[in-house]
């Protein structure tokens, strides 16, 4: 299919004798919000790092935006945005300096950066924080800023690794508004989370247990399949079967 942006085929990552990701196969469509769920240590971050070209797979194959993760990792990097679990803007640079730096290394012109960043900051309500050091912003604002920086260069796919960890419910809600906005603009969103209410916001969800995908469907279908009232229950039913200790 032409509008498939991520496709994996038995994608595997082995660290020594430990199989972190065990032959996962799935695909993600253009414009979709794809929830990637699993307990701590289920292998979500490892899988995501392989898709971003940060980690070389031990086996299987995957294409992201039409490029192979095995030998075209650098091409993939042009087409994706990434927001890691660790907050990863420079705390000792101002809001604007961060935007300019990350936009600049994706090859965006200075003039464009200037115009689009003021528009973006207005929208985020950070208009008068332009010259504030990022380190002194509250966490919720930092996360929103990090997301906006990750999609500033209009990537085809954005990968979010637990983007709302440690953030209050109101800010989380606002964060999801940003995600919907990006999705409306045609950006595919690949997101991991621990919050089951957030899982409900996704178009489709995969559940990872012990490195393998144990379920994959829309939230509604998953609930009926597991005869559960909400996503929490679905998660418990699946995660309880895990053999691996969470670490």
């Amino acid at each position: 299919m032409t509008d498939t942006v991520i496709q994996t085929e038995k994608l595997t990552k082995i660290f020594g004798s430990f199989t972190a990701v065990d032959a996962i196969t799935f695909d993600v469509k253009k414009g979709e919000i794809f929830g990637f769920l699993g307990a701590n240590g289920a292998g979500k971050t490892t899988a995501m790092r392989m898709l971003c070209g940060l980690s070389v797979p031990s086996g299987g194959e995957a294409t992201v935006a039409g490029f192979s993760v095995k030998n075209q990792a650098e091409q993939i990097k042009h087409s994706i945005g990434y927001m890691s679990q660790k907050f990863s803007l420079y705390e000792d640079l101002t809001v604007y300096e961060n935007i300019r730096f990350f936009a600049g290394i994706y090859g965006i012109e200075r003039k464009t950066i200037r115009a689009r960043s003021s528009e973006m900051l207005q929208r985020l309500g950070l208009g008068d924080q332009r010259n504030t050091l990022v380190g002194s912003l509250p966490l919720g604002w930092k996360q929103k800023l990090a997301f906006s920086v990750a999609i500033f260069h209009s990537p085809r796919i954005v990968f979010l690794d637990e983007p709302t960890g440690g953030v209050d419910p109101v800010t989380r809600r606002q964060f999801w508004d940003l995600i919907y906005e990006a999705s409306d603009n045609g950006i595919t969103v690949f997101v991991t989370t621990h919050y089951m209410d957030e899982a409900e916001y996704c178009n489709r969800i995969s559940m990872m247990v012990d490195g393998a995908i144990k379920a994959l469907d829309t939230p509604a279908n998953l609930k009926s399949q597991f005869q559960a009232n909400d996503m929490d229950e679905v998660f418990y039913r699946l995660a309880r079967r895990a053999k691996r200790k969470s670490y």
């Binding site: 971003c52 070209g53 940060l54 650098e74 990097k77 042009h78 994706i80 990434y82 890691s84 660790k86 907050f87 990863s88 803007l89 420079y90 705390e91 990350f102 290394i105 994706y106």
Partner: peptide
Amino acid sequence: EVGTIEQINVTPI
């Protein structure tokens, strides 16, 4: 240590 290198590595730099 801070983790910013990961953000750099995911760019086409």
